[in-house]
Design a protein around this nucleic acid. Structure first.
Lengths: 259, 259
DNA sequence: TTTGGAGATT
DNA sequence: AATCTCCAAA
């Protein structure tokens, strides 16, 4: 057995796959002793998905040899659909086998679903993601970001984001009119209700709303989301797992350049 | 600024729009110093919607000059979807501007959504609604009316309403059988639980259930609904706002004439 | 724990 | 308009 990983909550991986499903068809899961990692362009090569599940996210993790396992995301979605919300997951890969095994166990151990998934060869266009120094880092409730994106996408295809010390403004211009939502920095008892802005320099940029909505659907992964903005640089949309040390799921999207 | 109206609870207008959405595509909001008014046939010219929001329904209301503002109801629905349940609303229209501005503010003022909606020219088929002397006026809990309509629409498309001093009977004949719900007059501690019947003459009439279900969805506007019935005359379904002086929303539906 | 209603999504 | 999911009440 080269890879054996046990996850307390299969639902974590289910959420990750759900978030990835609309963007990527097939992806490589890069396995090493550090954990699992995915880095993939979306099918239309406009957005980038970056997932890291550190070894600490698992109750048990063993990986003898670094390797890339190519999987079909749709199939993964179907597999995890079999899992109940409290199921645990065991992931196994034998040396050079052409399948990987998923085993979902209900909490009471009275129901075991398992699936043998065929692996696929995916040319891994390995990409470096430069560590950006964002001019603005905004942290807000992930549910609020999801709602803003969904509400505004009704009016148009392009969203302008303006961030300054006073707040962050999401705007869409469409045929029937122009919509804006402004969030001001906000303290709150629960950290997950806060809106905070770290601003070195005000930033205005525009993005294809379609992708933002897709990213925002990763909200179940975390109660908060972190937006990273810079002038003429890609937007980062990052969801840290409940325990940030366990990893994150992050999306990048190139801005629309003004004509 | 010709029109400026502040509403404590944006949700009131949201409910009104939701109730109107399924019936009308575009409507004129007639603004005067008395308040806002809408009178519109539904798209298939079978039903009629009549809305009155008196000036007193607003925390602030100013209208320098009577005017009709044509708006798309779907767009209004999308705008109010952005509002939280406790948001307040500011409605503004500048002299002869071709847009009207909606501004939703959360209670804590840390989230402002606003929308600039393009106005449209709608030929206003102005109609007089004759004050009917209904043979029967029935008042019942709006939730109960909603449930009756929803339950019975499962069995057929046409509802017969029979009202007499003994009670009001809703009947549907369908392929799988015939369903009846009878409500007898009922006293109750809370006025909104009462069922009362004012009967000058027993009435039997039939209506297209589809419209009744749509009307009944306005239930969030008021805990009670008033049905007005006459032989061979349109049914009135009226929801008075919690404070009746603030206005009402009313629907009319022509009866199906027996073949 | 199970059932119903409400809200949201396609 | 129909389905599905989530949340709340019994």
């Amino acid at each position: 057995m080269v890879l054996e990983a046990h996850l307390q909550q299969a639902v974590l991986l289910k959420k990750v796959v759900d978030a990835m499903k609309e963007l990527c068809k097939d992806v490589n899961f890069d396995c090493s002793e550090k954990g699992l990692q995915v880095q993939s362009m979306d099918s239309s090569h406009v957005a980038l998905v970056s997932l890291l599940l550190r070894e600490s996210a698992f109750t048990e993790f063993k990986c003898d040899r670094a390797t890339s396992l190519g999987m079909n995301v749709d199939s993964l979605g179907k597999i995890f659909k079999m899992c109940g919300p409290t199921d645990s997951l065991k992931l196994r890969w034998q040396n050079d086998a052409d399948t990987v095994n998923f085993q979902c166990e209900s909490g009471e151990d009275d129901r075991i679903a398992d699936f043998e998934l065929k692996l696929m060869q995916i040319e891994s266009e390995h990409m470096e993601i430069p560590e950006q120094q964002y001019k603005v880092v905004a942290k807000l409730p992930s549910a609020e970001f999801l709602k803003v994106c969904r509400d505004l996408k009704e009016f148009g295809e392009t969203m302008q984001i303006q961030a300054s010390k006073d707040g962050i403004r999401f705007s869409v211009q469409g045929d029937v009119g122009t919509g804006n939502v402004v969030l001001k920095p906000r303290e709150a008892d629960k950290p997950e209700d806060r809106v905070s802005l770290l601003v070195h320099e005000s930033v205005t940029a525009t993005f294809a709303l379609r992708y933002l909505v897709t990213f925002a659907k990763a909200a179940p992964l975390s109660s908060t989301v972190e937006l990273g903005l810079g002038p003429d640089s890609p937007l980062s949309v990052k969801y840290e797992l409940e325990n940030a040390d366990n990893g994150y799921m992050q999306f990048y999207l190139a801005p629309k350049i003004d004509e």
